[in-house]
Simulated assay, not measured.
Amino acid sequence: MTTENPKRFKVATVSRLLGVSRSGYYTWAKHHVSARKARDEEIAAVIGRLRSEKGAFFHTYGSPRMHAELRMGHGFRIGRKRVERIMRERGWAGAVKRKFRFRANPATSEDKVNRNFHVPGPNRLWLGDITEHHTAEGKVYCAVVLDAYSRLAIGWSIGSRMTADLVVDALQMARWRRFGVRGAIMHSDHGSQYTSWAFTSRVHEAGLIASMGSVGDCYDNAMMESFWSGMQIELLDSQPWATRRQLGTAMFSWIEAW
């Protein structure tokens, strides 16, 4: 048995030995589809059908998620790299999250907290932030001022618009409840409501020390994020909300009673 590579034989010699014409061989070679190529076409057809399926979101899938769908949803035994190659060859790509460019408002303050939310007593560090949630009527916004020592919401305001008045009202409630407090750090993010003239002037007027975390970093106000997470789990995601009034009343009850 010869071990020579068949590719070394001339087409004319092989054709004569096999009893076929050279033109017949070239016709076969031109139109012949390998088993692997045929399998690729089969997989591509399924991917193409999924991507065009109405009411689904397969057109947003990249190769990792499409690979998982083919394996678990359609029983294909296939590697992720093969799916990636098939999609790349046909120009199919998943949806890419848009890059968000943060634009800091010029009226900002130095970060005087540096993620250290442990304070020895009340009225040393106050935290401010806003959250939003949908109802059938539209969004409801809630601004809160939190005392870092007790983690108690000492000021809050609820409304249908995210304006500077919302955060000013929450601060005013905190000042009323902690009457006479001066020198506390008032820490927030760089939202336009907190960098507004209305809010910053009230902070200075109250004798508080303004502080802001770095732009776009939730960890710089992590205690507030934890507060909102609790509200999200225990209240906001507990049911669909029909009206702004219904959700606003529920927010009031959760903050003041719960």
Score class of each variant (00 low, 15 high):
Thr2His: 09
Thr3Met: 07
Glu4Gly: 10
Asn5Pro: 05
Val11Glu: 08
Val11Lys: 06
Thr13Ile: 05
Val14Leu: 14
Arg16Thr: 15
Arg16Asn: 15
Ser21Pro: 04
Ser21Asp: 06
Arg22His: 03
Thr27Val: 12
Trp28Phe: 15
His31Lys: 13
His32Phe: 15
His32Glu: 08
Val33Trp: 04
Ser34Cys: 11
Lys37Val: 13
Ala38His: 05
Ile43Asn: 01
Ile43Gln: 01
Ala44Gln: 05
Arg49Pro: 02
Leu50Asn: 07
Arg51Asn: 00
Glu53His: 11
Glu53Gln: 15
Tyr61Ile: 00
Gly62Ala: 11
Pro64Lys: 14
His67Cys: 14
Ala68Val: 10
Leu70Tyr: 10
His74Asn: 10
Gly75Ser: 05
Phe76Glu: 06
Phe76Gln: 05
Gly79Ala: 03
Gly79Gln: 02
Lys81His: 15
Val83Asn: 11
Glu84Asp: 06
Ile86Met: 04
Met87Asp: 03
Arg88Ser: 09
Glu89Thr: 09
Ala93Gln: 15
Gly94Cys: 14
Ala95Asp: 12
Lys97Asn: 11
Arg98Ser: 02
Lys99Gln: 10
Phe100Glu: 07
Phe100His: 14
Phe100Gly: 12
Phe100Ser: 12
Phe100Gln: 12
Arg103Met: 09
Ala104Ile: 13
Ala104Leu: 10
Ser109Ala: 15
Ser109Asn: 09
Glu110Arg: 11
Glu110Asn: 08
Pro120Met: 10
Pro120Arg: 11
Pro122Ser: 12
Asn123Gly: 07
Trp126Gly: 01
Trp126Leu: 00
Leu127Ala: 02
Asp129Tyr: 03
Thr131Cys: 01
Glu132Asn: 13
His133Leu: 09
His134Gly: 13
His134Gln: 15
His134Tyr: 11
Glu137Lys: 03
Glu137Thr: 06
Lys139Asp: 14
Tyr141Asp: 03
Cys142Pro: 06
Ala143Phe: 04
Val145Ser: 01
Leu146Gln: 02
Leu146His: 02
Tyr149His: 14
Arg151Pro: 09
Leu152Met: 07
Ala153Thr: 00
Ile154Asp: 08
Ile158Gln: 05
Ser160Phe: 03
Arg161Met: 08
Met162Arg: 10
Thr163Gly: 06
Thr163Asn: 05
Val167Gln: 01
Val168Pro: 00
Val168Met: 01
Asp169Val: 04
Leu171Arg: 11
Gln172Pro: 02
Met173Ser: 07
Arg175Asp: 03
Arg175Asn: 09
Arg177Ala: 04
Arg178Asn: 14
Gly180Tyr: 03
Arg182Pro: 02
Gly183Ala: 05
Ala184Gly: 04
Ala184Cys: 11
Ile185Arg: 10
His190Gly: 04
Gly191Glu: 05
Ser192Ala: 08
Ser192Met: 05
Gln193Ser: 01
Tyr194Asn: 04
Tyr194Ile: 06
Tyr194Cys: 04
Ser196Glu: 13
Ala198Glu: 14
Phe199Glu: 03
Thr200Leu: 07
Thr200Gln: 13
Ser201Thr: 15
Arg202His: 09
Gly207Ser: 03
Gly207Phe: 03
Leu208Arg: 05
Leu208Asp: 10
Ala210Lys: 04
Ser211Cys: 14
Met212Gln: 01
Gly213Asp: 00
Cys218Asp: 09
Asn221His: 07
Phe227Met: 07
Trp228Pro: 07
Ser229Glu: 13
Ser229Met: 08
Gly230Arg: 06
Ile233Phe: 14
Leu235Ala: 03
Ser238Ala: 14
Ser238Arg: 08
Ala242Asp: 13
Arg244Leu: 07
Leu247Lys: 08
Thr249Gly: 09
Trp254Ser: 01
Trp258Met: 08
